[in-house]
Write a protein that binds this DNA or RNA. Structure first.
Lengths: 234, 234
DNA sequence: CGCCGTATTGAGCGCTCTCAAGCTAGGTGG
DNA sequence: CCACCTAGCTTGAGAGCGCTCAATACGGCG
């Protein structure tokens, strides 16, 4: 757990920032019904934070880094439900049953905030603006990964890259960014093998649509990438 | 629009029923902050109720029948986001942007209730139990269709059939039910062609796992179907 | 009864997977 | 600082699952 305010680097990016008070800044009146950050956690790459069937108690906000939620199938395949980047919240999926339906682990060194669900509910009850905000965020989650429904590998990968760029540099699409996850993870999310990811990235590069330099991706022709995502190429 | 109470057949199944008052039963004090059913709509098969980029104003609750949400891709392919059966709510996806991201249409003759979002927000603000209920329902939506991530056609179809049975006879899995949608619709949802759906249903039947009689599906070996869904067969 | 949308079944093809062999980069320990 | 070592990426060849195209059958509805 971290405690000095210098360790709170990214609160401006956090979707909860206007309803949240870091603990050391809490005014003496504790009844303000804001969320209070009591537990901030540093995670190493590959460090897990919850497992399937763990009791649901907290939502989590990513402050720095990136996480994945996933579960391992009977045959050993890892199935990735989603990625979460700085400012994003995960755990909503656990509300319904009271248990996390997945594992969550950091894919980079990361910092996250715990948001106790009880406290979350109290803030919700006392702040109509928070209600609207949460509805909006959960609504956004419902639309996440809609491109997973695309049929071809090219389409899904192109849409994924665009989505990734926007979420890493919200709200803009930057033409340069670093892939936070391995090809394996991308594949497990997009239902492709790492070999296919690699082949397609090479193909996109050969066609002058993107440039790949290790983990660095550069969009050279974003419009063409969008066309591929929409199934409009060739 | 319907008006006699005899036309309110299914309110007990509706997830909003305890926070909702059909209009003619509204007590004179209109400030009770319950949802009030003002618009109930009868839909014919294939009748649409909203289109992409329509302004978001209402959530909808299915009272009878079944609906699909979908959009048509550039190449003419119809991509189905989800199905909605008696008691289920749709439209949450539109909250974030303020516009419906899809079309919605009845796949059977259906009856739906409009829930104006303004009114929904007022009820939410005044009723903490409603807040919890909505969080739970949206959380459930986030978990919907998780089996779409399965890699093989058999797995997705088996999981879909089980999900379907449970949602048509909530909360139980009935061993008999009628397929509400065409193979085409199933395929568009599961990312399979109608031919593949047909072949797999035949195969399941040949293996004694289910029985198919036109639209009627009977589960003969639910455990085996579950194994297939989990990728544990052969 | 005749029509049209839907389901079934078959044959062949192509996209993506599997398996396999190098290669690269980054981390570790001497 | 360098040599090793390992995880991850790249690229190739071949196989298989699900798609495409096509012909036929069925059934609901006028």
């Amino acid at each position: 757990m971290l405690s000095t305010s210098s360790r709170y680097p990214n609160c401006t990016a956090c979707t909860f920032s206007s309803f949240c008070v870091p603990e050391e800044k809490t005014p003496s009146s504790t009844k303000n019904k804001n969320l209070v950050v009591r537990h901030r956690q540093q995670l190493k790459r590959k460090e897990a934070i919850c497992a399937p069937h763990n009791k649901f108690q907290n939502l989590y906000v990513v402050q720095q880094g990136a996480l994945k939620t996933y579960h391992v199938e009977a045959d050993g395949k890892e199935l990735i439900h989603g990625f979460y980047f700085a400012g994003e919240v995960f755990g909503y999926e656990a509300i319904h049953t009271g248990y996390y339906p997945f594992s969550a682990a950091a894919i980079l060194g990361s910092v996250i905030c715990q948001v106790p669900y009880q406290e979350f509910l109290e803030t919700l009850d006392s702040k109509p603006e928070f209600q609207k905000e949460i509805l909006s965020l959960m609504s956004q989650q419902l639309n996440r990964g809609s491109y997973l429904a695309s049929t071809t590998a090219k389409q899904r990968l192109a849409a994924f890259l665009i989505d990734l760029s926007r979420r890493l540099h919200r709200p803009h699409i930057y033409s340069e960014f670093l892939l936070p996850m391995s090809h394996q993870d991308m594949g497990n999310y997009l239902k492709l093998t790492p070999e296919t990811i690699s082949r397609l990235l090479s193909q996109f590069q050969k066609n002058g649509i993107i440039q790949v330099d290790h983990k660095k991706i550069s969009f050279l022709q974003l419009d063409k990438l969008k066309q591929i995502a929409d199934g409009l190429d060739e």
